[in-house]
Every structure is written in C-alpha cells, then in structure tokens.
Design a protein around this nucleic acid. Structure first.
Lengths: 234, 234
DNA sequence: CATTTTTGTTAATGTAAGGTTAAAAGCTAT
DNA sequence: ATAGCTTTTAACCTTACATTAACAAAAATG
C-alpha cells in the first residue's frame, strides 16, 4: 500500500501567515496549494483533488463559509477545517452546518495543527472504507450496489438481486480476475458444503451469467474442481 | 453554558484493552463507565444516562449487536459506536440495521477515536438543539412536518398523520434513497421486534403508500428480507 | 473410448416475506 | 360511557426466494 503525499488546499488571505503555514506544512511532507482568497481557492479546488481543505473564515470578498458551501456542492466528502480567530463561538456552529470537520483557533500550536490534520485525513480514510464504498462495485459496465442489492448496466434501470445472487456476485467481485473458490462461497454464503448446496450455488452462477450477458466483456469462468473466476476483458 | 463531563458507557470484555481505553478516555475528560460484558453493560445502561455507548461486537454470552438492540428499545437516541475487528466487514451492515452511529476498527488510532467521539456527541447535540431539519422533509412534491405530523402535497391542504405513520415516514425520509432496515424501524418505533410488530409495520407501509400515491415520482420499495427504501425518481 | 465426475441450465416445489383489507382491541377526551 | 380516533391482530392473497430434481454438456480419469 504505497501512499501519495497528502494534498492540502490552504486558503488564507494574510500573506505572511499563509506563507509561513504553507512552508511549515510542506516541511512536514504535505503537498500544499496556497490560494490567497476565496475566489482563487475555489478555482484551484475545481482543478485538483485534495485530501483536506484549510479555509480561513475571515477573508475579503468571499468568506470561508461561502467557499465551504461551494466546495461541498462539488464534493461532499473532502474534509474541511476552518481557521478562526479565538472565541468566535458563533462561527463554530455555523461551520458545522456547512460540514466542517474541525476548527483551529488562531493563533494555534503548530504541533496541534499537525496532529489534527493527521487525524482528520486518517479518519476520512477509515470512514470511507466503512461507509458506502464497501458495498459498491464496478464490474465492467455494471454497477453493483450490494447494500441495496441492485445491479445496473450503464446507468440503466437496475435489476433487483436476491440475497444469494447479491452475496455471490459480491464475493466474485471481491476476487475479480482471480479464483473465487467454491468452498469459500459455500462456507461464507451457504454456511454448509455438501452436494445440494453446491448444486444450489451452480444454479446461482447460471442466474448471474444471465444478468451479466448484457456486457460481452464480463464473464464468469469455471475452473474445474476449483471454483469460479469473474473476468472483465479489455 | 456549563457543561457536564460527557458520559460514556464502554462495554468491552478484554480486560487489558478495556482498561487502557477507559483510562485513555478519562484522561481526555470523559466520564467513563466500563462494563465487562453485555449483561453488565445493560444493567449499567439502565441505571444511568449516557451520552455515548461504545460496544465491542465480539463478546461472550451477549454480543454487541444484541446489547445494542436492547439499548435501542430503552432509548432511541443515544449514539452507539461499535468496536469491531478490522476484517469483519459483514458486521458493518448488521450494525447499521440496529442504528449504529459509527464503526471503529481495532486496532485504531486513538486520536481518531477521540475525534469521532467528539464529532458524534457534537452532532447529536446540534441535532437535538436547533435543527429543524430533522423534522421537516421534502419528499418529491410532499412536505412532511413531522413535529406537527402534517403531510402536504404541493402546498395543498395537509393531511394529518397518526404518530406511527409520522414516525415511520420520518425514518424513511431520513434514509431517503437508502435502505431503511426493518429492524431499525421496529427497534426505534415499535421498540420490539416480533412477528406482530413486523406485520403492524407492513400495515403502516401500506398506509403511507396510499398517501404518497399523489406523486408518481415517490415510492416506497421493498428490499426483501432487509427493509424499505423511500425513493424519489427524477 | 467408455465411464465417472463436475458443471450448465431449466423447471417445479415449498416456504417465507410482504401487500392489502377488515375487524378487533386500545386509547383518549368529552 | 361512548365517539372518534389509533394500533394491532387476523385473514387471505401475491410475490420473492432457495432448494431440489432432472437432464444435458463438458471435463477429467483410466
């Protein structure tokens, strides 16, 4: 699991403070883009993918909250941290309404800032794993939503999957292009491994193949005596 | 605004891990009650008011999910966070069914834990204080005011909903386009989960569908064996 | 090549879950 | 107590699902 440098968008109008903060963050191994006002910040945001946005609240022309709202319209996930003057408690509530992840009071301890940044990025990483992404798979032209149990092809009207269809396809997708052993599906889905459950599984493989026929690039291959392989041809 | 220390119920059977976690939380200014198993956890829960419950999923005798259900029958609001082993992905769905607020994978970054706790308690606080959002919903052409139990279509004369109709529709709206698990409605609204309450719920689904028929874009879909989904088609 | 084993596929069956309506039972305020 | 509601229970029907059976085809075995 190699990681790219985390990208931070810093929007701060005070040139002294902004530059110092940028340098400090870069010294700590972040890839920082510094925008000098809300307008510029939004432009830069649209051009790139960031792991975190740090927005000063008080800025001329476009304040941090307004900017945050615009950012949220484009991206509901990216963590946003506000920089705010001490004791501006009204700001805190307002910030949470536009989906702030945290607050930093100016002036702040630079160590604290680093800790928080690390924590926020980390949190987002674990959240996204445990949240929806878990249940959504792309299989060639198909989208499988295994929480809602539906399968759609190229955005068309989705087909509903039965629980077993769903779990089996999900398991195949988790092993895409790789062997998904019969035994695995039987123990995980059927919780029993005998002649009948095995035949039942074959029936479900047939059902899945029927659904997947819409995309000629996608197929379920059998590996005799071993299991199945969901392949997506390019 | 004087605040009391936030109270956390921690239910964790591993004495080492539990003690460490408890101490860590206490160092961070939470008032922590540590229960060593599900039974004890439920006893302590009944005795006190907590701001947050942290439940280990894997425990002997009574697992975290069972405990969560019991807790939900007493209290529909208290935030619940599950502790789960990293690779137990199946658990995630199960947890959401009983109304989990979040997940933490063991082992986890203690900073992350603190952030999440803070965020969850904060979220709950702002929700309960000010937000009209959780009582007013737009559902296609409908407006639901779940405080007044009014449902109106395109600004027309509103229909008065019964308490159960109202709560059920509200719960569906909170999960708009997403799965609203049967179990969640039963534990949150009926506070019991058996054959009859389940049938009762189906009756209410039928009633709601009748109301919602006015707008062909709005429908309640069933996900067999899982729950319902309020969808608004565009 | 003949035979056995595994897999592909379709259809039939039985069961469980959900849809719907109506009657019975509970409430609540008068 | 009773009128007017809400909620539960019951009944009956439809749909969804999983399993099993049956037979065909493919792959392995010897």
């Amino acid at each position: 699991m190699e990681e790219h440098k985390k990208r931070i968008l810093l929007v701060e109008d005070d040139p002294n403070f902004g530059t110092v903060l940028k340098d400090y963050l870069m010294m700590n191994d972040y890839d920082v883009t510094h925008a000098k006002n809300g307008m510029e910040g939004f432009e830069k945001f649209k051009k790139d993918d960031f792991d975190l946005c740090i927005l000063d609240v008080m800025m001329p022309y476009k304040d941090g909250f307004t900017l945050a709202k615009e950012i949220r319209e484009k991206n509901t996930d990216v963590p946003i941290v506000f920089l705010t003057a001490k004791t501006m408690k009204e700001d805190v509530l307002k910030g949470y309404k536009v989906g702030a992840d945290d607050y930093l009071n100016k002036p702040f301890d630079s160590e604290v800032l680093l800790m928080k940044i690390k924590a926020i990025i980390q949190r987002k990483a674990t959240e996204t794993v445990s949240d929806s992404k878990q249940f959504e798979f792309k299989i060639g032209g198909f989208d499988l939503n295994s929480k809602l149990r539906f399968l759609s092809f190229n955005g068309a009207e989705p087909v509903k999957l039965s629980p077993k269809e769903n779990e089996l396809l999900r398991l195949l997708a988790l092993h895409e292009n790789d062997l998904m052993p019969r035994e695995l599906a039987l123990t995980k889905i059927w919780r029993d491994d005998n002649y009948f459950t095995s035949r039942s599984m074959d029936v479900y493989i047939a059902k899945l193949r029927k659904y997947l026929k819409l995309d000629p690039k996608v197929e379920i291959l059998n590996i005799h005596g071993e299991g199945f392989r969901l392949v997506v041809n390019s």
